[in-house]
Design a protein around this nucleic acid. Structure first.
Lengths: 160, 160
DNA sequence: AAAATTTGCGTAATCAGTTACGTAATTGTT
DNA sequence: AACAATTACGTAACTGATTACGCAAATTTT
């Protein structure tokens, strides 16, 4: 228990960040364990394309709630690896659509198996705790999307 | 509800990261609201020094569970602002000790008031949910510190 | 006391994301 | 049809953190 953890409510942002890094790092080990040439950071984009088929940069960015340069960057890496391909949209010359390549499709079953196992293990860890972090996370996300932090703060400040 | 959120257990690392960023960004607004010249990222170091008085770089890094270059970087900014000062240790020529400056001490009461309010508000948000995220986070942290992710994964894989 | 190891710190390079800005294509307005 | 506004994408610069590496001081070993 370090100083930050002792702070409870004050520092739970830092704790969440740290936790998420631990999880990401764990992901690398697992792909390596299976000898699969894949990185955790590629997951959101690759998974998105596996579900939606073909999609433009902005659509993906919005769907994944990340910036569009982040999509471009990840796409560059996945394209270099040959796991996805991109081509200009025919009906809108501004758009570039991404989709999973043949090579990517071949990899997909292995990845899906790994994802499934990771998901099961995570679900298992989560469900065997007394407090369910997914439920808790969802409630906090909802609470925050209602009102901005500052707005909420001002209100809270007033009624104190 | 975006794609990532729908993934539940598989992507809760990303969700936590996003949540922590939301919280950090909220912090900025609050300092600005109070007209206080302070950034959320300075909090861990400054708070640490406010509790421990004087401390070396490594001690702080370990206490806060961050890398020592991160401490150096933050210290540089706080020193530039004049909120902390540093001096070579007298009994160990390798060490450089940090402590809060006069100017920093003057700022401290205001900061403490703000921290207290943020803490209260966070506690309020957390406690008025059905599921307590702090409890949940603590359980997950404990679960992960027991065993590495891969270790846990291998075991889980075996018994599946 | 000399040699080897460890510790504390600093710098550089890297990483994964962001914001800011520019350009070209499309859509909306008059 | 011309102009204005918006949208889609790309690049560049920045951010906040990390790992890798090197050096000097302290500590331990022999």
């Amino acid at each position: 228990m370090d100083l930050i953890s002792e702070l409870g409510a004050l520092a739970f942002g830092s704790r969440m960040k740290r936790m998420s890094e631990t999880i990401m790092r764990g992901g690398e080990d697992i792909y390596r364990f299976y000898g699969v040439d894949f990185q955790p950071k590629w997951f959101p984009l690759f998974y998105y394309l596996s579900q939606k088929g073909e999609a433009g940069i902005m659509e993906i960015a919005e769907g994944l709630n990340i910036s569009h340069p982040a999509v471009i960057q990840t796409a560059k890496e996945l394209e270099k690896k040959g796991f996805i391909i991109s081509k200009k949209s025919t009906d809108d010359a501004r758009k570039r659509n991404l989709k999973i390549s043949k090579k990517g499709k071949n990899l997909l079953p292995q990845l899906q198996k790994i994802w499934e196992e990771i998901k099961n293990m995570n679900a298992n860890i989560i469900e065997t705790r007394e407090h369910n972090i997914l439920e808790a996370l969802k409630e906090i996300e909802d609470a925050w999307s209602e009102k901005s932090y500052l707005e909420r703060f001002k209100e809270f400040h007033k009624i104190q």
